[in-house]
Computed example of a mutant assay.
Amino acid sequence: MATVHVPLPVPAHPNTQPPPELTGKAKLEYDRVLAHFANPEYCLPGTPSEKSSKLMEEECMWLSYECLLRYIRAAKHDVALAIKRIEDTLKWRRDFGIYDVLTAELVEPEAVTGKEFLFGYDTCGRPGLYMCPSKQNTEEGPRQIQFVVWVLERAIDLMGPGVETLALMIDFADKAKNSSISTARTVLNILQSHYPERLGVSLIAHLPWLLHAFFKLITPLIDPLTRTKMIFNPLFELDQLVHDGWGGTQMFAYDHDTYWPVLVEMCEKRREDMARMWRKLGGVVGIKEWDVKVGLRDEKADEEKPVVFEETSQ
């Protein structure tokens, strides 16, 4: 089997199902959150001016049907808390620079060794995000955290219809270099506060006994539900994921000069296409990610249909 050096395309997922229709209390909760953010007069609290308090197009698109539901569930169906958490994330995304500062050019120095990369999909269609701490190449600092968030955002770009979570693989082989407790705490806080219900499974391989102490230190910082998704030294196949170290079907090798520009272009194109489809569907708060992604899938299928020319009688 030939070695692969570039990301795999987003799978079509023809058998995935749309999100179920809401009824009863669940619908009332959702409608209240939607009405709050869809209000034409809505202004984001704590912003310096009326102009900056208005939601940007990227933020309205981010406030999808599924996004609102993720926060409602994360808030244990407390509507007021869900609204507060969403607003906290909206402000954090601006402050962190998700839409302007956090670029591929900024974080590329962190990516050159392949210490963190995206490749393939597991049997549930979740994109695979790999971390290889032994390939750490930079001093600990803000850019390392920015890189983690950038890759997470790209994983979300590459989720197909009906997929809202990712598969995180951490390989501690080859004398992995550990992050400090401070960095681990910062990353965990970002993930738990601003990316609720995005982790599908976390597979941790080749964990030496010395690192168990490290995990014991950070375990109290991890949400109990997240802890249930952590699997140590897994022994099962992972479909279209990396073969070496993980038992997947893909012979992948990280070559930065080949991989990086393809990943960046693929994600930029997908974000542009999703924004175009979102506008086509109305361009408002509460549009379903499912409808956007299925719209793109169907559009691509139509483009790939062979052209049939009818014979005309002379």
Rank of each mutant, 00 (worst) to 15 (best):
L238N: 11
Y130C: 01
D273Q: 04
L22C: 05
E66G: 12
E105A: 11
R297D: 12
R297I: 04
Q192C: 12
T183E: 10
L55M: 06
Q17C: 10
A184E: 04
N15K: 14
G200C: 11
V292K: 04
L221S: 13
G245A: 04
A82H: 05
E29L: 08
F252L: 11
E59F: 09
I222W: 08
Q136N: 11
G46F: 00
K115P: 07
P261D: 11
E310W: 02
P7H: 04
S52T: 03
N137A: 10
E299D: 13
H206W: 04
A35H: 08
S52G: 07
K269C: 09
R85D: 02
G245Y: 09
T249R: 15
P220S: 03
I72T: 01
A104W: 13
T186Q: 05
W278E: 01
L217G: 14
T226S: 13
H5I: 04
A111Q: 06
A205I: 00
R297N: 14
N15C: 06
L102F: 02
L8G: 12
M169R: 10
L207I: 03
V148H: 14
Q144I: 12
P9F: 02
G120W: 01
L129V: 15
E299L: 08
D78G: 14
L152D: 01
E140R: 15
V262A: 03
G46H: 07
M274P: 09
G162R: 06
R227E: 09
L34N: 04
I145N: 15
G247T: 09
P14Q: 07
G295V: 07
L217R: 06
R70K: 09
E237F: 08
L69V: 06
G295D: 11
M1F: 00
Y42G: 10
A111E: 00
E110K: 07
Y71S: 02
I86Q: 03
I83Y: 03
P45L: 11
K305C: 14
V262E: 07
L152C: 09
V294L: 13
T103L: 15
Q136K: 13
V242H: 13
H13I: 09
H5T: 15
K84F: 01
E66L: 07
L69F: 11
Y130V: 06
V148C: 14
M61E: 05
D100I: 07
M230V: 12
L235K: 14
G160S: 00
P9V: 06
I156F: 13
G245Q: 06
I204S: 00
I190M: 05
R94T: 02
M131L: 15
T186W: 00
E265P: 10
E303R: 10
S193C: 12
V107C: 13
K91C: 08
I98L: 15
D298Y: 03
V112T: 06
E237R: 10
S179P: 15
S64F: 13
N178Q: 12
P224N: 05
P306R: 11
E66I: 12
D255W: 03
G120Q: 02
R94E: 01
V79P: 03
Q144R: 15
P109E: 09
P45E: 10
D100T: 09
P19V: 02
A104H: 10
A80M: 11
V107S: 07
P234Q: 05
I156W: 14
K76A: 15
V79N: 00
M266W: 00
